[in-house]
Design a protein around this nucleic acid. Structure first.
Ligand SMILES: [Mn+2]
Ligand SMILES: [Mn+2]
Ligand SMILES: [Mn+2]
Ligand SMILES: [Mn+2]
Lengths: 219, 219
DNA sequence: TATTATTTTTAGATTTGTCTAAATTTATTT
DNA sequence: AAATAAATTTAGACAAATCTAAAAATAATA
């Protein structure tokens, strides 16, 4: 089936929310979409008519299989374009989201398939988020939040959830990028900050706020 | 200023029509846009309000300087994306138009600048049409229609105006692509067909219909 | 449990882009 | 010049996506 840009944006947003909460409610979707609860209700009726979600009024909603498939298709396009923008056009990672937010709505299966091949069928976008394949299959990643990790074990940075300029600035300062190797030396109970050692650099301290946005894998 | 997708499509279409006719009229724009004359009139009011064209009702219309600038910006984006699709994603040239028709509406000056650089600042799109630079400047080309050319002079194919699968099939059969070298040996008065010799191939005959869509430069 | 607060939906309006049918203007023929 | 034809515009309608304000349902609290 074919969806409008607005429908695709809503579907994708519901998908992300239901990953966290299971069932999604009207106000949270409205907040996330920067729109009004009344507008969300309108859209829910359309998406229900297209049989993309389970929805009973006043009771919350979530995507069914068809809805999840549609969401993953948009996510795939979004992340492939982000990869293109960073790897080929040399954008900084904090600039690509709004552009990918538009590119993801270009509908051409052949375009995306060719783009995927051109990019070398990448598995992760520039933020470390997995890129679903054309069937909606997502590579499994065994990652863990940096703030919950065992001390003195070697780690690799696999993704970063906050993708703002500010975050990029911080990570650049610490010389951390996706794939960086590091180890947590100590956790300070006072403010939950961490002393870490990035490979080939002297130890430094990062705040709990930073740590909570960084995900890692054990090497 | 920022324009809607529909506005951009209309502006671009007016630009192409006025290249040929000077002044454009409602019916031709409606025909070209596959829409209704009444819808064109509606759009003209909007574009006039945005000060993009000279328009007096019942008298025809044409873009002013601001309108031409806006049109060239869309043309630039369209042709850069077409170049990307053919050169990088290996699309056949007859498949790229509808996709570029959508990509051209992604609005990000930085995206287009980076794309332009990534592609090596090309001057011509896959159909041989010139790509305006970011100021709207178009490379001058001294090309001539193949059907009006001097006999027995060496020529280079510089552009092809019909971009259908059918045309691509014909040209592939004759082994002609952009940049091919050829020479017209004889013009048959009976049906205006041409005997041509493509470099390294034996002479053959092409119809007037084909010739009229092929533009060349003297070597 | 009754009252109050929060969440969600409905009712009705607005904007954009399009359409059809009818009216108007301009162009072309007798 | 009058009649006819063609082009163009207007009037009024509709669908999509959004909004505000009010009503209804549900949740939280006294
Ligand atoms: Mn989007
Ligand atoms: Mn991303
Ligand atoms: Mn377009
Ligand atoms: Mn082209």
């Amino acid at each position: 089936m074919n969806f409008t840009t607005s429908e695709e944006n809503h579907i994708k947003c519901i998908y992300h929310l239901q990953q966290v909460t299971g069932l999604v409610n009207t106000n949270s979707l409205a907040a996330e979409m920067q729109t009004r609860p009344a507008s969300v209700t309108d859209m829910l009726k359309k998406l229900k008519a297209k049989k993309l979600l389970h929805y009973e009024r006043y009771k919350g909603f979530k995507l069914n299989e068809a809805g999840k498939k549609a969401a993953l298709d948009v996510v795939r396009k979004h992340r492939l374009w982000e990869f293109f923008l960073v790897e080929k056009l040399k954008f900084d990672w904090d600039k690509v989201h709004p552009i990918a937010e538009e590119l993801e709505h270009i509908n051409s299966a052949e375009l995306i398939q060719r783009l995927d091949n051109f990019l070398g069928n990448p598995s992760f976008d520039p933020h470390g988020d997995p890129i679903p394949d054309k069937h909606g299959k997502i590579p499994v990643i065994n990652q863990q939040n940096l703030s919950t990790v065992t001390l003195k074990k070697m780690l690799t940075v696999s993704s970063v959830t906050n993708q703002s300029v500010q975050m990029l600035e911080m990570l650049k300062h610490y010389n951390i990028t996706l794939g960086s190797q590091l180890m947590v030396l100590k956790k300070f109970e006072f403010d939950e900050s961490l002393e870490i050692k990035v490979l080939k650099q002297s130890p430094c301290i990062i705040s709990e706020q930073v740590a909570k946005n960084v995900f890692v894998q054990y090497v």
